[in-house]
Design a protein around this nucleic acid. Structure first.
Lengths: 378, 378
DNA sequence: CCAAGTTAAACAACAGTGTGGACTAACCGG
DNA sequence: CCGGTTAGTCCACACTGTTGTTTAACTTGG
């Protein structure tokens, strides 16, 4: 994923220089409005409700968020009016005196979000509810050498199809996950390997024009890491056509200065190794793909595991999710190799325990949809 | 730095398990108070003033922060009253009509902060003003095999010395930079290489008791990256007794899930390489130190450069600062090697330009002081 | 059974935030 | 001197979360 970045951007590509603030109403560097304060707290409450499987009460929300009970009352009243929350009975705990707590739950169908994965051979589109669960999907093959416009027209048609049966649930937006490199700020693709006609495409604008929805463009690996809520420090490691990673650090998605972080596959593990598509030698991706071509899954797994150990060591993440078609096709050897590598390389496996999980096949488009959900959940 | 993490924590070490929220008044997961809102906006304004060398005006602050002119007026009034800001004349721009802007400047001496670097051989303490400039310093040798208590007593005496002549400038706190691994949340040291008697020491508590100041414990590499304000995505790379890195990503310091991120020196670059002190083989640090022992600075530089290129590739940082006694003693070959490696390995050096800077010898204690300044600047 | 105790949540009044509009201050240009 | 222009403030306001009090809905105990 995000395989091959090649050389300089083609001369015709739009300049990636963009004001970092964005044209939002938002104060840029940390300063906050009252409106933003409200949105933030609403989002914090929604996250807390989502996190609590089986519903929460207002008191519990007050504890979790650190806000006053009264503030929680006001916020939940707002969210109830918006239809995002619903009251669902009371908690009857035996032997506990006092008025029972009123349970609050997310209303999954109150809103929905669209997520798409644009790959080299296929386009996956799906619609999720507020919880991130897939409620509808559609797929279509892609001709990597075809005109992007045709693909986007098809995408727009699929979007209409999937939003038509959305019922009353408002669609928050459409997330688009693509192979990198790209710039998520302006939604412009750079040198997408294997899809030369997509180079320099202003993807966000093109899809926004075709669908009328708010569109968010993201690298596929970054989308992958967002496919479901998780700990504040986690990584999504992808092995498919290429090798890449998506990172959440300190609770925030990490895109890097030019929204191009996650080039996990191009860490050099052997300066004298085989040449990589990126021009360098001995990249993890090159070693991995070479091993796979030779039918040596064990060697590919060992190489990937080494990279994961390096990543965990460098960033101290507590969860690593594995994804990508190649890996998910035969996950055990990779998981075993990674566990071995982590046990061997972490100074204290007890203290620095790392959870290893497996992504679903739809993780990337689900993560893309999660981008649209982030409007509500922050 | 943060050289060798060894095995499991000694049996006597306090359990590092700690509630992640911390006992502050602060709402934990993203929710905000009105008081926190105010503090945040104050900090944002202070940062903006600090960032603008030669002072700023209120209008400019309004643009930079995205707040209203009125809000800026109120905030600056507060900061002026607190003595943090001062009005310093007006801007007379020729050919520009209208009332001239009133310049606002930081008052460097309004507050001060203490920063210390606890090394294996020396203890450096310094006091900085609000701008982070060093206004006083004191140093003392350390016996790595001596009792920590004696060192801390000495530290407390030095603190008294440096705060006595602080004049009216209130001391915000004391930042302590140490070799890792450690837990910054509870301020407990783990297996500090070469200082066995420090293992398991509850450093924050011990120093807080001795000085009465708010104490913040930080890994030396992380302190290094904070030594001065910089871009939102940057790294501090250290080569001294060991190899490590401090990371600021998305404008936030990255400490990792167990506050132990930055083990840059233990990325494996050669599974069959020489054994490292950490128990694994072929760590960047092992390769680097071996080359240095052999007098091959060029090879050490090449290895470090490879690691830096991997780091930049993975995290898309826009500035790398080099520090550490070994490196600063002979920086040119390292800088040259890193420039070469970046040029060779970055897909598009034009788009992904990386600034390479050199840290000062006092970067680490200055960064430690910056931790205390962060109370004001966020 | 009913009163007391307890917990949850809302109601009312309030302090403090940033906002919008009108106003004053301080310059420039003719 | 006076209009034009820009910077900054004064005032009333809308909205945030907070504090203190009251109501709701239980359990407990006599």
């Amino acid at each position: 994923m995000t395989t091959d970045p090649d050389r300089a951007p083609s001369p015709g590509a739009p300049a990636p220089a963009v004001p970092p603030g964005g044209p939002d109403r938002a104060p840029s560097p940390g300063a906050l409005n009252l409106a933003l304060l409200r949105d933030r707290n609403d989002a914090a409450v929604l996250r807390a409700v989502r996190a609590a499987r089986d519903g929460t009460s207002r008191v519990e929300l007050a504890v979790r968020t650190g806000l006053t009970a009264q503030a929680i009352s006001k916020i939940t009243a707002r969210l109830l009016a918006d239809g995002l929350l619903t009251e669902a009975g009371r908690t009857h705990v035996a032997g506990r005196s006092g008025k029972p707590r009123t349970l609050l739950r997310l209303v999954p169908d109150a809103r929905s979000a669209l997520g798409a994965e644009i790959g080299r051979r296929e386009l996956h589109l799906l619609r999720t509810d507020l919880t991130g669960a897939v409620v509808a999907r559609a797929d279509t093959p892609i001709d990597p050498d075809g005109a992007p416009g045709l693909v986007l027209d098809r995408l727009a048609a699929m979007v209409r199809e999937l939003t038509a049966d959305a019922g009353g649930s408002r669609v928050l937006g459409l997330g688009l996950a693509c192979p990198g490199p790209l710039d998520t700020r302006d939604g412009v693709l750079h040198q997408v390997t294997g899809m030369p006609r997509w180079h320099g495409l202003h993807l966000r604008e093109a899809v926004q024009d075709r669908t009328g929805l708010p569109v968010l463009v993201e690298k596929n690996t970054t989308a992958g890491v967002l496919s479901r809520p998780g700990p504040d420090h986690r990584a999504f490691v992808y092995l498919g056509d290429g090798v890449g990673a998506g990172l959440v650090l300190g609770g925030q998605v990490q895109r890097g200065a030019r929204t191009n972080a996650g080039e996990f596959g191009h860490q050099c593990l052997d300066p004298d190794g085989p040449p990589c598509a990126c021009g360098a030698r001995g990249c993890l991706e090159a070693l991995c793909l070479a091993a796979l071509r030779a039918g040596r899954t064990d060697r590919a797994a060992a190489v990937l595991a080494l990279g994961v150990a390096n990543l965990v060591r460098l960033l101290d993440v507590e969860e690593v999710t594995l994804g990508g078609a190649t890996l998910l096709g035969d996950p055990e050897p990779y998981e075993a190799a990674i566990r071995t590598a982590l046990a061997a390389r972490l100074p204290d496996p007890h203290w620095q325990h790392v959870t290893l999980t497996r992504a679903t096949a739809l993780a990337v488009p689900q993560g893309a949809a999660a981008l649209a959900l982030a409007r509500l959940f922050g």
